[in-house]
């Protein structure tokens, strides 16, 4: 497009975080400070470890380079009325949880829609299981989407269907399961998200609380046992207790089932708890991509402000 406001991007560039230092990847604070932050993170993570101790944890290999990239965005550019994403790249290895953080309106949900091929980038590539998905036709895109479970920001439950029908929906659409098997699967998923199946199964989404809707959304997303889970702001608008519950659920899903997850969130606290890597989106670009430790060790001004003292 010729009318893209290139002149404006110059003006914006000045607000961008300092460019990454060569070699190390990102500016990292050295010395005692860094040790202190690491210790803080360790305590956070250990708190979770305890909560999850009963859960039978499978071997999980976050970030192990010997495993293939399940998800990858490569030099993705996307503009609606104005540019939203410019040269965005990151990848997730099998079993990893990547948190995409950033202010609202920076294009976090857009990234999830790109992964689901609900949107196609103007330039760049999107890979799911090493398959380039931007060129796929509609039926093939539907197939790729079945590898993924998506949890929408507002849960996006079908409001004309009961909880049971919502969770059964992907099973009815894509599997040849019998009615009894579907029922069993729905019960299993509801129990996994800590909802009492007998209590909620016949309720309509409008009768549920926000946190319960989110959990039903997660149950529906994982109904097909997908290898990839995508979450759009799973904890936003929830009280601290429910936030903790949902965060634990996401961690549990990753540890017990080994799914690869992308979590969009501006909740830094829960991001640090579950992320193997964090991507910070700012000014249409990935301003940071690395481990939580690296992020909290960074002395970049924008990132420090973004973390808000965390």
């Amino acid at each position: 497009m010729s009318d893209r406001p290139d002149d404006r991007s110059d003006e914006r560039r000045s607000h961008e975080p300092a460019p990454a230092r060569e070699g190390t990847g990102f500016p990292v604070r050295r010395g005692a400070d860094r040790e202190r932050v690491r210790a803080a993170i360790r305590t956070e993570l250990e708190g979770d470890e305890e909560a999850l101790s009963q859960a039978e944890t499978r071997e999980y290999h976050a970030g192990d380079p010997s495993h293939h990239r399940v998800i990858a965005l490569q030099n993705v550019h996307l503009a609606f009325d104005e540019p939203i994403l410019e040269d965005v790249s990151f990848a997730a290895v099998e079993g990893e949880t990547i948190v995409v953080a950033g202010e609202s309106g920076t294009g976090k949900s857009t990234i999830l829609k790109l992964l689901l091929r609900l949107l196609v980038p103007d330039r760049g590539n999107v890979y799911i299981d090493d398959e380039e998905i931007t060129q796929l036709n509609f039926p093939d895109a539907l197939k790729v989407r079945q590898k993924m479970g998506m949890v929408f920001q507002g849960a996006a439950l079908f409001d004309s269907m009961t909880v049971f029908e919502n969770i059964a929906y992907p099973l009815r659409e894509h599997t040849a399961l019998t009615e009894a098997e579907i029922e069993e699967r729905v019960h299993e998923k509801l129990s996994f998200v800590d909802l009492d199946p007998d209590r909620v199964i016949d309720q309509l989404p409008s009768e549920l609380s926000g946190g319960m809707r989110k959990r039903v959304g997660i149950a529906r997303g994982m109904a097909n046992n997908p290898e990839i889970m995508l979450y759009d702001e799973p904890t936003s608008g929830l009280d601290p207790l429910t936030t903790a519950t949902i965060t634990h659920l996401i961690i549990k899903l990753q540890r017990e089932l080994g799914v690869t997850s992308i979590v969009v969130s501006h909740d830094i606290r829960s991001a640090f708890k579950m992320a193997s890597k964090i991507a910070v989106l700012a000014n249409r670009k990935i301003a940071f991509f690395g481990s939580p430790e690296e992020l909290s060790g960074s002395d970049d001004k924008y990132l420090r402000d973004f973390l808000g003292g965390y």
Binding site: K113, F138, K143, Q146, M148, G154, A156, D159
Partner: peptide
């Protein structure tokens, strides 16, 4: 409310 996106995601046109 993103239910249309949800349909698409769950593999329904």
């Amino acid at each position: 409310t993103e239910q249309i996106d949800a349909l698409n995601t769950l593999g329904t046109d």
